[in-house]
Amino acid sequence: MAGLGVKICGVEFKNPVIAASGCFGFGQEYAKMYPASVFGGISLKGMTFEERQGNPPPRIAETPSGMLNSVGLQNPGVEAFLKHELPALKGVDTVLIANAAGSTVESYAALVERLSDSDVDMVELNISCPNVKQGGAAFGVTCESAASVVKAVRKVCKKPLIVKLSPNVTDIAAIAQAVEAEGADAVSLINTLLGMRIDIKTRRPVLKNNVGGLSGPAVFPVAVRMVWQVASRVKIPVIGLGGIEKWQDAVEMMMAGASAIQVGAAMFYDPYAPIKIIDGMNQWLDEQGIKDVNEIVGTVQPW
């Protein structure tokens, strides 16, 4: 059995597979099928300081090899999270990552400050949600705004800080460098790509929010390309996500430069996908005679 453990910003993960934010709730729901402890880590549902109701339904649409969603960061707010959700995760053997979003620099900072005193292991700063009218992706699309929010959050964040990047930009590596310069400990990418579908019978968008975020296998090559570009321009660890559904995708993403990977939409059609990915990687590493999964990170040999 190969070593599957990875260390990101000093935090030990027993394997490099992390549940992607928004796809695993607050870690309780899939416990009806298997324990959350199968994951190296779980990135919890994106939260804000105050409760948010999210967008009106329909919030989801099928797309070729993927899906659009427009949940709009529905969450109970940080106090309800700390009171009701986090205690339920006590004792679960996995790295807990709080995904934090806001609508102003101040609201991001206030939220992260509150999370810093809790038992979460890491904070993933969400500057890339495409489904909220204020904040969210607006912060992730220019180097200046991304830097400003990371700078403010860094001052109050006592946990390792991951910044989750938007793919809806011209040069994602420049944004990664900007947040690295302000003290981000790692970056995760990609969040969803902005998309739209129209029902030709009603001439109405399928999503009530008109537009939404595209995820699933359709975005995987975009994610691999962006992870590869970012990994070559920053020194901090890169966490790769976007359309990973099988162990081969996870290996590919790590070869592109990801130190760990996240699985999201794949769980909706194959709830056991994360377990299959972990087992598949393990077996492949053994077959290849590779003793440690870290050895494959960034090993793509570009032409």
């Binding site: 109701q53 919030r59 989801i60 969603n69 949940v71 529905q74 909706f268």
Partner: peptide
């Protein structure tokens, strides 16, 4: 009925407007 994602309560897409015990409405 509503368009659904995960089916198990993790993804929050199948929103339905309801009244809470405190009288407030939410999804």
């Amino acid at each position: 009925e509503e368009r659904m994602g995960c089916g198990i309560g993790a993804c929050l897409v199948c929103a339905c407007k309801t009244k809470r015990p405190d009288g407030e409405t939410g999804y």
